[in-house]
């Protein structure tokens, strides 16, 4: 059984460490906030200009001046702070954020990531993704292992326009976990979702990888 979105988020939460300042992207990465281990202090950054994101507000308590980078209404904590987008990306570009967990369209075995456009089809933009992968110390990508068509997304080389070169440290898909190491070492498959076999992963992956299930 492949992992669900929630299970992928829970696996990604294992990358959190006490004291970390963390940026979570839109989609599955946002769910990681629900799996911060009890007793662990993690501060969530929202790149539109906030440290210390709180949970979603109760109905009727939404504040139009308080949203996250996904434009969702959120709340503040006693420890929160607000700042400009320039200060926010100073934190990101300056290497002050420990961990970025974000979504992907394609990842390559050399650590390249594509997640912002499909030429001629989708015009959305990169938002803060290029800054995050360039500046954050550790980058974890969470994405489905294959396209809806079944085509692989973990490739020898990305075919879509890149978000960053050699930036992915860890890839978590619904089938398993890969240590990509920014392309500086051969890719290792370090964990499999329950019931998923190495053969199934190989059949659905274009990238080359070694199997190191004990070495995670």
């Amino acid at each position: 059984m492949a992992w669900t979105r929630e299970e992928m988020a829970a696996r990604a939460a294992q990358e959190l460490r006490d004291g970390f300042y963390v940026n979570l992207g839109i989609g599955i990465p946002t769910l990681v906030a629900n799996y911060i281990p009890a007793g662990m202090h993690v501060t969530l950054q929202s790149e539109n200009g906030m440290l210390g994101m709180g949970p979603f507000p109760y109905e009727g308590e939404e504040d139009a001046d308080l949203i996250n980078a996904g434009k969702q209404t959120i709340t503040e904590l006693d420890s929160s702070s607000y700042f400009s987008s320039a200060d926010s990306f100073g934190m990101i570009r300056g290497g002050h954020i420990a961990l970025s967990i974000l979504g992907g369209m394609q990842v390559a075995e050399n650590g390249d990531l594509a997640n912002w456009m499909v030429p001629g089809k989708m015009v959305k933009g990169m938002g803060g993704a290029m800054d995050l992968v360039a500046g954050v110390k550790r980058v974890v990508v969470v994405m489905d292992h294959v396209e809806k068509s079944g085509a692989p997304k973990f490739l020898k080389a990305c075919t879509l326009p890149l978000t960053g070169l050699g930036v992915v440290d860890l890839l978590i898909t619904d089938l398993g976990v890969f240590d990509v190491a920014r392309g500086k070492a051969p890719v290792r498959l370090t964990a499999l979702a329950p019931g998923v076999t190495v053969e199934e992963v190989k059949a659905k992956t274009e990238a080359a990888f070694a199997v190191d299930l004990a070495g995670a």
Binding site: E47, S84, S85, A86, S88, F89, G90, I92, R93, G125, M126, G127, G128, A129, M130, D131, A134, G135, P161, L162, T163, G164, L165
Partner: peptide
């Protein structure tokens, strides 16, 4: 399209009289 942090910094720089700057963001991309 400008990366969000690059856009923010371009504007900050413009307002502060800085004509250009170097950033890691976007190296090797479109």
């Amino acid at each position: 399209f400008n990366p969000q942090g690059t856009l923010a910094e371009r504007i900050r720089a413009g307002g502060a009289g800085i004509p250009a700057f170097f950033t890691k963001t976007g190296v090797g991309t479109l």
